[in-house]
Design a protein around this nucleic acid. Sequence first.
RNA 1: GCAGCAGUAGCUCAGUUGGUUAGAGCACUAGUUUGUGGAACUAGGGGUCGGUGGUUCGAAUCCACCCUGCUGUACCA
Length: 444
Amino acid sequence: MVKNNKSKPSKELPSGFVDRQEKELLIRDFVISNIKEVMIKYGFQYLETPSFEYTDSIGKFLPDKERPDQGVFSFKDEKNWLSLRYDLTAPLARYVAKNYLELPKPFKRYQLGSVWRNEKPGPGRFREFLQFDADYVGTRSPQADAELCVLISEILDKCGLDKNDYTVKISSRKFIDKLFDQLKITSKDQKSTTLRALDKIDRLGWEESKKLLSEGRKDKSGDYTKGAKLKKDQIKTIENALKSKSASSEDILEIIKIFEAFNFTNYKFDPSVIRGLEYYTGPVFEVNLNFEVKNAKGQTIQFGSIGGGGRYDNLVSNFGNFDCPATGISIGLDRLVFALMQKKDFKLKSTRPVVICIFDKNKTKEYVGILNRLRSSNVSSEIYPGEGKLKKQMEYANKIGSPAVILYGEDEIKLGKVTLKNLATGNESSVKIEDLVDEIKKII
RNA sequence: GCAGCAGUAGCUCAGUUGGUUAGAGCACUAGUUUGUGGAACUAGGGGUCGGUGGUUCGAAUCCACCCUGCUGUACCA
């Protein structure tokens, strides 16, 4: 609801952007700490690149010359078009190209950062979101591809998911290419339409996807999507190849061998995993959750994957004459957190301060004395930061979830004691100032 | 982009054969308690009923267009 109020600015957010509150942020921090732990263990370097890049550095496909804002957020400074990054892979390729000679080969780095997409927001999908990327640059070894899947799995386990909650699906562009050769499908258009149709099998099922492989499909909203116009026997061959689930592609077989060495079993070969059409060149991965995710209204939503990636051997070479294979994986952290919040009841400590109530404005010295005593013992604490009666101060403490309040008024000052009130139980006790920290630590 | 549904108080929502000053719960403010929160009671504040135009004696309600949100679908580096 955007109210057109000329005198005041809108309090609404731009479409696709959200405020995130502490509960969500604490879970996010928890996820991030797990990620860092795993990344260090696996030997990755930490990298940060800027939010903005030159537009033509972060994607040869974008922006559309006539519509520089399509898909990405862009603006022109005095000379050049700049864009907010839409993923972390393109900046990585740029970084590697820029520092090619100095970097170790292979180069393993991980990165956490927001990315922005100027497109319609969907369920759990926003125009600004936090991404995690781990990439191996400069190696063709299937060990790299395999380890990415293993590491993602380890992160999810640490976050509290168990093996039934998610599956790492793998496939390979080579498997599909082989199929295209076999079927003598050469038209680029037909290939990409076919890939898109296969990508939808998970969501629509075989019958509906088949319509997209042949003439086309009308969805329940009445919208019609043109199909790939394949012949019946071609579709049959594809169906058989996909349903057989035998990984008849060299790269996949090697990866699976390495999975076995790692004792990693929570994967599935699934040729319907397609991912981005343009830049993947070999194995592709996708991490899917196996439980239902609901939105704020309690409706079950099409959640899709929480992450994925694959091998992109040509991306770095876009920037120069490098032969630089690479493979990577990413997780959409906000989406993962959104799902985790529903799956698990996190008891993450959100430490709220002990509140020291104010009785007399002229006793600041006494209050600060108590405050310092608490803070120097690392007890989260504050002097009531407002103005008002004790009742108001109590209401405040209650509302912020404070564990206790300290009453230090005329009576207490005379006695050299403070009154400590446990807000959970309502108990009050009179304690000596020297014992205050110990007593509070019993409560929090 | 296309389609379905929705938009009434800060939040969740009720309110159609069109009819006085538009309601509830929660939240908020004040009080019952001038040194005590979470419960209760009392009182109070808060709305151009998403916007604009139209039909009508009269519109939250009917019509048209627009905006925003949700869901699906398309596209997606």
